[in-house]
Design a binder for these strands. Structure first.
Lengths: 194, 194
DNA sequence: CGGGTTATGGACTGCACGGTCAACAATGAC
DNA sequence: GTCATTGTTGACCGTGCAGTCCATAACCCG
């Protein structure tokens, strides 16, 4: 046939994602991307298109992976309420990762007003997250761990909003100890026992 | 003496702030700044220094103004608990402004990992905000509108974190109606009646 | 009115960026 | 071994950028 590729697409996308995550979209140059992937410009362009398309590709992969992890988290917990607490604590579960924030959130803040693709990806992401969390809230209610009078979707929105607030405060340099305490406070308040 | 300035410094800083707010730091060029201020490059450099210093100047002005408004909001309310609710609802109080987010938050997400000045400004801003809100929480407790067993600072941190989550979800394109409902849910949960 | 001083505006510079391209390398089919 | 096909590489290009600088304009003081 023809000459085969010498790189693994997933490895390249992971390196690209980390680069955009650390430096943002505008502050990442093609030279940065060449350095972290080990590929030449031509290879990157042939395989992924231009910088913007490559960014969207990495961003979508990040979102899909995150949803995969979330599904696993929500489904694997014996009691749904514990999964919901873990969801809220996730931003502070990795002490070193808090200041990094979330690639989707960082990208949204940087680009939402000028890049419709990023905004659309954000809406898609949070719709999915809300649905996953709402289902888990309903399960927690059936298990008797969360008051049954609250609307699961509304509770899920509140949990997601609070979680994004935690992500943001971590990005803003709040130390992890104080932020963990805040996360626990939010969990206690937003997941009232019946 | 010498030739006087033909521009008003505050007006210029307001125009600059709006430009950075709408487009972000990296996506704002000096040409943009010249357009919105009506000044030439030489005037901008002579009066404010380079792009980065001008940005920091506008950002600090924004933060100081925000704290001024917050003081006014917290002090003017007859009952402190209503002020705290207003604080939480502020991001959705202007329907058109929700998607704009907050200049401090947008800047932090875009630049926190590469610009120490912005990160320092963020920490300063949120320390101040926390102190102001905590004082108001204490007042609400004295007025008997908020349960007295909660630590005012910890409650303030939870409120601020939730508020930033609301700001962010607005920036991410959540429609204002749904977001207002979420804000009310968060207010109800985070400000429990005694 | 003249001269010292500061503001103004635009021409200019050097650079880093995203993107293109063509020559070359590696593979499998036959 | 030959060839068609695809991947790889690095030189190259045009553009837009931040920042500099200087000639000129406007002002106040004496």
């Amino acid at each position: 046939m023809a000459r085969p590729r010498t790189f693994d697409e997933q490895q390249v996308l992971t390196a690209v994602r980390d680069q955009f995550w650390d430096a943002g979209y505008a502050d990442t140059s093609l030279e940065d991307l060449m350095r972290v992937t080990g590929l030449g410009k031509g290879s990157l362009y042939a395989a992924f298109g231009d910088k913007h398309r490559l960014f969207l590709r990495a961003l979508r992969g990040y979102v899909d992976d995150s949803h995969g992890h979330l599904r696993q988290l929500l489904d694997s917990a014996p009691r749904a309420v514990d999964a919901l607490r873990s969801f809220l604590m996730a931003p502070v579960s990795d002490p070193d990762g808090a200041a990094r924030g979330c690639l989707m959130a960082n990208s949204t803040c940087e680009l939402a007003s000028t890049d419709p693709d990023v905004l659309a990806e954000a809406r898609r992401a949070y719709d999915t997250t809300t649905a996953l969390v709402a289902e888990c809230v309903a399960r927690a209610q059936r298990e008797g761990d969360v008051a049954g009078d609250a609307d699961p979707v509304e509770t899920a929105r509140a949990l997601l909003t609070a979680q994004q607030g935690i992500v943001y405060m971590g990005r803003a340099g709040t130390d992890v100890a104080a932020l963990s305490a805040t996360a626990r406070t939010l969990a206690d308040r937003l997941l009232p026992r019946p």
